[in-house]
Simulated assay, not measured.
Amino acid sequence: MTLRWGIVTAGKICHDFVNAFNSYPDKGNQIIFGIAARDKNKAEEFAAIHHIEKVFDSYEDMAKSKDIDVAYIGSLNIYHYDLAKLFLNNGKHVLCEKPLCFNSDEVESLTELARTKNLFLMEGIWSRFSPAYYDLEQIIASGVIGDVRFLEANFGIFTEDKRITTRNYGGSAVLDIGVYVLQLAQFVFKDSPKRVIAVGKRNHDEVDVSETIVLEYDDDRRAVLNTNTQLELVNQAVVYGTKGHITLQPPFHFPNKMILQDGKVKEYTLHTSALPYHYENSAGLVYEAIEVEKCIRQGLTESPRMSHSESRLLALLEDCVRRDLNVSINSKNRHYKKILIL
C-alpha cells in the first residue's frame, strides 16, 4: 500500500523537502499527494511547481482526509505543537520540522499523545540520517579514536529573518540552529549532561541571537557548542578521542566530507534535482522521509535513531539554554493572532 504524504504549509523548507523527495529515485512506495497552506493561492502555486495532485482548503480538511497517511509540518516553530496535535488527533502520522515544539512541556505532551494514539511521530533532525553520521557512529563504536572526551561544534549564520529574530514568530538561535549542535552532542556521547552552562546575547525583542553552550558529562567529557545568527562561523564539528579525532566539515549538520583519524577525506554525494534548493544540502531531507516510511511499515511509533526520548532531552537542553539567557520559554506568551502561518 502506498504511503501518502500531506505537506503542511508552502514555505521554503517544505519546498526543499518536496524537491528532495520527488527527485530521489529510490524512496520506496510513498508519494506526496496533497498540500495545505493558510493562503490557498500559495498552496496552488506550490502544487503546480511540484506536481502535487490535491490542494486542500484548510489544515483541518487535510487532517480529516482519508487520502493522507502522514503529514510533514514545516510551519513556524510556534505552530508545531498545535498542528502536530491536529493531525495526530485525526489519525495521521507526523514528521515535524525541528524544533518539535516550543518547549519541553509541549514535547512531553505531544509524544504522549502519539503514544496513546499509536501513531508515528518524529522530530525532523535530518542530520541523524546523513551517511556521514552513520559512518561517524561506527567509527566511534569501533574504538579507533579511543574514548571520546571532547566535542566542539559551531553553527553561525548572518540573518535578519523574522522567523529567527522575532519573539512573536517564535524566533530563537538555539531553536533554529542550536538544535543541530545540541543533537550532535547527544549523538556523540549517548548520554545526558550533568551540567549545562550557557552565555550569550538577546536582541531588542528578547530573543536569543547567539550563545556559547558548555555541556559537562560524567568522566570529564565535555562539549563546547557555539551558535550565532549575527556572525558567520566555520560550521564544522570535531570529535576528539584519546587516540585521534574526526572532523565533520561544513556544513557539519549534513556534511559532504568527513576527515578521518588518519587524515584521509571521505566524501558523500547527494542526488541532483532540476529545481534549486533554499538551504544547503537539502537533498538530504529525503533520508528522513525514507526513515519515516520504514518505521511506519514496521509498525513503529518512533524512530530508534531519533526517538521521543531524544526529542524530550533535546527540548530540555533548549529550555536550559534559554533560561540561562533569561529568555522566556513559556508558549503562553505568544501572540497567535498577529502571525500568519507560512
Rank of each mutant, 00 (worst) to 15 (best):
Y134K: 12
A84W: 09
M122I: 15
A84F: 09
S142T: 05
S172V: 04
Q183H: 15
E152T: 12
L95Y: 07
G156A: 08
G124N: 11
G143Q: 10
V148K: 02
F189T: 11
Q183A: 14
F102D: 14
G170W: 01
I177G: 03
F87A: 08
V174S: 06
Y133M: 09
S130E: 00
V94R: 02
N77D: 01
Q138S: 15
I145V: 13
D161H: 13
H93Q: 01
C101N: 09
L119F: 03
K162R: 13
R149T: 14
I140D: 10
E137R: 13
L119S: 06
G156E: 06
T166D: 14
F102P: 08
L110V: 04
K85T: 15
E123M: 08
S130I: 02
Y79P: 00
E106Q: 15
G124D: 04
E112W: 00
T165V: 10
T159H: 01
S130L: 02
L119A: 03
V107M: 04
L95C: 00
N89I: 11
N154S: 10
I73T: 05
F120Y: 14
I140N: 02
G146C: 09
A114C: 05
Y169C: 05
I139D: 08
D135H: 13
L83S: 08
K98V: 00
N154I: 00
L95Q: 01
F102W: 15
I73V: 14
F120T: 02
L100P: 00
Y180M: 06
R115D: 12
Y79M: 12
V148R: 03
L121I: 07
R128P: 00
S172H: 10
A84D: 12
I125A: 08
S142W: 04
I157Q: 05
F150W: 05
I177L: 07
L110G: 08
I78Y: 05
F129W: 12
R115Q: 14
K92P: 02
V144A: 12
Y79F: 15
L76C: 05
A132Y: 07
I139M: 11
D147P: 03
L86V: 10
S130N: 12
L175K: 10
I78V: 13
N77P: 03
F150E: 15
R128G: 09
A141D: 15
N77C: 02
I177W: 01
L121P: 02
